[in-house]
């Protein structure tokens, strides 16, 4: 009886970690999305300097693992005068990492929009930004969404690593419970199920977005 009650007690404690996991996932997805859009557009720029700087950002963050980046954000940045809370470091590292992967997706999607569309915007005398905003992006978004969905899942999985820089999310809470009670199977099974639920929710959301943005566009892969 006692063990059952304590199991309920620490399940609740672990569930509080889900809030931090969701928060971390959403904030870093948001940061990644903004960075991916900016960097992706910059990668298709005419100016070589813009392209080069963006390329360096993308290669650095794709070339090292999110694990190393999290540790750099949390342990190394304070030494150069930037002190961030664990959550802030987590959002920064995960966002920068996701943004680098996302930039490639955005670049590929922008390039996948037909050349005739670009020529039409020139013929209609639209400015570069008008063309991008009203013609190219709305079509490119449909190409981006499936990959963005996968990246969101990768980011969500990356949040588990943030437990190692003391963000009290699911994995961290499970480790605390393991340390306090010595019980291992229950906490880890519980968080596996919660991660699975969060991932499935994310996937359903992206599928819904795909349908929403896919409306009115003739699909090329039917």
């Amino acid at each position: 009886m006692n063990t059952f009650e304590s199991a309920i007690g620490y399940s609740w404690f672990i569930l509080t970690g889900a809030v931090a996991t969701v928060e971390l996932t959403l904030l870093s997805c948001l940061l990644a999305l903004i960075l991916a859009m900016l960097a992706g557009i910059a990668l298709t720029s005419d100016q070589i300097a813009v392209r080069a700087v963006t390329r360096i950002y993308v290669e650095i963050f794709r070339g090292t693992s999110v694990f190393v980046q999290l540790f750099a954000a949390y342990f190394v940045l304070p030494f150069v005068g930037v002190s961030l809370s664990p959550l802030q470091s987590g959002v920064l590292a995960l966002g920068l990492n996701g943004g680098a992967y996302g930039a490639e997706v955005v670049r590929a999607a922008l390039n996948a929009v037909g050349r005739d569309q670009r020529e039409a915007t020139i013929a209609l005398n639209l400015t570069r930004w008008q063309a991008l905003w009203w013609v190219i992006l709305p079509q490119a978004v449909v190409f981006m969404l499936p990959s963005f969905g996968n990246l969101a899942i990768e980011l969500m999985k990356g949040t588990a690593v943030a437990s190692l820089i003391t963000v009290s999310e699911l994995t961290f809470q499970a480790q605390v419970v393991r340390g306090q009670t010595g019980d291992t199977a229950m906490p880890f099974l519980l968080i596996l199920v919660i991660y699975l639920l969060i991932a499935s929710a994310l996937i359903s959301f992206v599928r819904w977005l795909e349908r929403r943005f896919g409306r009115g566009i003739v699909s090329a892969n039917t």
Binding site: I153, A160, V161, L164, T171, F188, L189, L192, S200, I203
Partner: peptide
């Protein structure tokens, strides 16, 4: 396996 974090899977293998 694809929808859960590698770190948690490792803890599972190592601790559970």
């Amino acid at each position: 396996i694809r929808r859960t974090p590698l770190l948690v899977q490792l803890y599972f293998l190592f601790y559970v």
